[in-house]
Amino acid sequence: MKWFDYECPRTVEAAVGLLSAPGRKVRALAGGTDLLVQLRAGRREADLVVDIKEIRELNELRLDSTGLTIGAAVPCYRIYNDPAIARAYPGLIDAVSLIGGTQIQGRASLGGNLANAAPSADAVPVLIALGARCLMAGPAGARSLAVEDFCVAPGRNALAPGELLVSIHIAAPASGSGAAYLRFIPRNEMDIAVVGAGASVVLDGNVFAEARIALASVAPTPLFAAQAGDSLIGKPVGEASINAAAEIAKAAAKPITDMRGTAEYRRHLCGVMTRRALTRAIARAKETN
């Protein structure tokens, strides 16, 4: 690992200033559970590391009538330890409670999971399914972006130079809604999703009013399978509609063969995991009805 400089700004403005330093390789540091590992292995380089954990907005965790605001540096454990959040967003809890183990969850943030832009990131599919938005600040001011548009390539995100992810916002859950995230891994812990599936549904009686499905590890970026979700709208809840949506998700996937599984196997799992995630989301939606 090479030496780097370290700064720990207190404000978004100061962080943006540091991140915009001309001619330097600058990296934001939240929990560091991706970044430090990558720096040590020589997979990323940095001359300057900007620790963003002391910035107030990035540590905010607020549930109100508009929904949930999660500061980009909030570690996973704070999210699942909040009973009101856990009740309102069980699908999100699925994801934050399976990232790493207890130690990792004490540090790892949703912002880092998203900004790292891994196709396998576990929190991203459920954020997409929940229709979450990213709020960013940069030299040119603030803007927001749908989560499904945030990751652009493996390890690359939509942040412009000098831009910082400030928070993630998820709308308040509609009545009759439910969400879930599931991943398939060969072990039961400490593994990277071979395939992950996030699903969110809103039911009107026994009919899908809304549905969104997203997948991990089956494309260069987390995959929003919009057509799979859309196919459910207006259909009755049941095996036929769920299987049809799973088939569409399967067709949307563009998996590769690697040490974590063959393309054929991954495609097969897309169907299985989509079905299982939908089934769990539906069960939760029925509970809240």
Binding site: P186, R187, N188, E189, M190, D191, I192, D258, M259, R260
Partner: peptide, 16 residues
């Protein structure tokens, strides 16, 4: 060797 780490060289954990 494509999986030269304990992440991808999958030894069983206590949970397995």
């Amino acid at each position: 060797m494509m999986n030269s780490s304990f992440l991808d060289y999958r030894m069983p954990t206590a949970l397995d």
